[in-house]
């Protein structure tokens, strides 16, 4: 039960963004439940999911905020996005328009998150290669130019989904190890081992004694 002792050392906060219908919620379900939801209802406002993963022997709880594609940061206050350690930016490889909108998503993300937020670009629906509208090469180039991590994935088959979430976590963890990510910063999107239940999330005193940095 959740009120029992915590069995993880960190909480990383993620957001998933991208145009409507690119499969954000499906990626989340695939990652948290290892299932594909063919008829996933639209996200209105936000939803969230969690999963505990392990990076370098440390248990990390991922708290993933799934946003409504049509909202573009507006419905829910920006503070929820600002405190994100990782942002998964998703487009649909079979719909060019969703790729074309990436630059405005990226602008929004950069404006509303902090500089150390790890942004991971995901080209979803890689199982529909026959209907491909965006090549791997051009997306890879876009990612490189903007310093993003990139992978093509399929929420349907599960291909590369784990990888995307885990690689993001590794990168964030690396930033903590390198000292690039300041755990004391209110909006780092990372919490060290949580305090007793019932405390506000944001007001937890950073416990640095176990930290390797």
């Amino acid at each position: 039960m959740t009120s029992g002792p915590y069995n993880y050392s960190y909480i990383f906060k993620y957001i998933i963004i991208g145009d409507m219908g690119v499969g954000k919620s499906c990626l989340l379900h695939q990652f948290t439940d290892k299932k594909f939801m063919a008829d996933c209802p639209h996200t209105i406002g936000v939803e969230f999911g969690t999963r505990i993963i392990e990076v370098a022997g440390q248990k990390i709880k991922l708290q993933i905020w799934d946003t409504a594609g049509q909202e573009r940061f507006r419905a829910v206050t920006r503070s929820y996005y600002r405190g994100a350690a990782g942002a998964l930016m998703v487009y649909d490889i079979t719909r060019r328009s969703t790729y074309n909108h990436l630059s405005s998503w990226l602008t929004d993300t950069r404006n509303l998150t902090n500089p150390s937020t790890v942004i991971f670009l995901i080209g979803n629906k890689s199982d529909l290669d026959g209907q491909r509208d965006v090549t791997y090469e051009e997306a890879k180039q876009f990612a490189d130019e903007n310093g993003l991590m990139f992978v093509e994935a399929s929420a349907k088959t599960g291909q590369n989904v784990e990888e995307a979430f885990l690689e993001t976590a590794k990168k964030i963890y690396q930033s903590i190890q390198d000292g690039r990510l300041d755990l004391n910063a209110a909006e780092s999107g990372v919490q060290h081992k949580p305090a007793s239940p019932g405390r506000p999330l944001a007001a937890q005193p950073p416990a640095r004694d176990n930290c390797a940095c």
Binding site: G45, V46, V76, T77, G198, R199, P200, L201, A202
Partner: peptide, 18 residues
Amino acid sequence: LVEHNISLELFGIRWLRL
């Protein structure tokens, strides 16, 4: 709710819009 840092909009938007 305030202590938990939970604001109503997180679920309230869905409640109201739908």
